[in-house]
């Protein structure tokens, strides 16, 4: 009746723990392997999806910001659709960043645990070097999550639980989390399901709009969709019209409102694009 989302820089242990819990609770799993399905459904390149999930668009423009946002939105949409069916363990998809408000999702951050992996070969480097490497990785993730969702992925405030893998064994983590998942407080209810449905609707609207437009923020409450965008003044009414037309075709919207944010920086930046 609930969902577990794991987040960690330690991909190996995250995967191990995720799989073990899913097995123990006989839950579905949701991870990078899901990129296949996403790629198929949206006709995208798998390689590019995982690239979008890891890099932040920069001036070097390995991937244009527009494409990047669209790819992320595809992942978000598909992941949310999967999460609508609860009983699921999800990791490696940064999904916790868009299900913040949903009470039946247990969000857990796993930190540390590199020591145990170093023997297996992933990080066969000196401890101090490894520390630097991890710090660099964390900075990259922070940059990514700030650019994508305006949140710091490592912020403990975003999680229900933070577990230090240096101090707690994998099996203990599995037991603890399995037990925690059994708490009634993480049961799905009308309120949280509605929130999830809203979130999915928002992701769908955003995904549809990002096919042709940029700079789209969507907020949904109870089927009421508010799209916030910014554009140059002369394009304002045209853009709003476009948004209304595109989004109007999406099923499940009870009320649609488009808000226009006058953003000088974006305005200035988009002129020279």
């Amino acid at each position: 009746m609930s969902i577990l989302i794991l987040s960690s820089e330690n991909k190996e242990l995250e995967k191990e723990i995720g799989k073990k819990i899913a097995q123990k609770l006989s839950f579905a799993t949701l991870n990078e392997q899901f990129f296949n399905k996403i790629a198929a459904r949206h006709r995208l390149e798998i390689k590019k999806i995982s690239e979008a999930m890891n890099i932040t668009p920069s001036i070097l423009k390995l991937m244009p910001a527009k494409t990047w946002h669209y790819y992320l939105s595809c992942v978000e949409l598909e992941v949310l659709e999967q999460l609508l069916e609860d009983r699921c363990v999800c990791w490696g998809l940064a999904a916790h960043l868009y299900v913040m408000v949903i009470s039946h999702v247990l969000k857990v951050r796993l930190i540390g645990g590199y020591g145990s992996v170093s023997q297996s070969g992933q990080f066969s480097m000196a401890p101090d070097k490894m520390e630097k490497h991890i710090a660099q990785q964390e900075r990259n993730r922070e940059k990514w999550s700030m650019a994508a969702f305006n949140r710091k992925e490592a912020d403990p405030g975003l999680y229900d639980m933070v577990i230090n893998l240096d101090q707690i064994q994998v099996d203990e983590v599995v037991d603890t989390l399995s037990m925690t998942m059994g708490y009634s407080r993480f049961t799905a209810m009308t309120y949280s399901k509605k929130k999830m449905a809203d979130q999915l609707l928002g992701a769908r609207v955003k995904n549809t709009l990002l096919k042709s437009l940029t700079d789209i923020h969507v907020h949904v409450q109870d089927g009421t969709v508010v799209v916030t965008t910014s554009s140059m003044k002369r394009e304002k009414s045209k853009k709003i019209e476009t948004i209304k037309e595109i989004a109007g075709r999406i099923e499940g919207i009870r009320y649609l409102e488009v808000r226009w944010n006058k953003d000088i920086i974006t305005e200035a930046a988009t002129i020279f694009r």
Binding site: S103, Y183, S184, R185, F186, T187, M189, T190, Y191, S192, K194
Partner: peptide, 10 residues
């Protein structure tokens, strides 16, 4: 929910 509510509606 923890206290045993059947459901919670906003």
């Amino acid at each position: 929910m923890e206290k045993g509510a059947f459901d919670f509606i906003a």
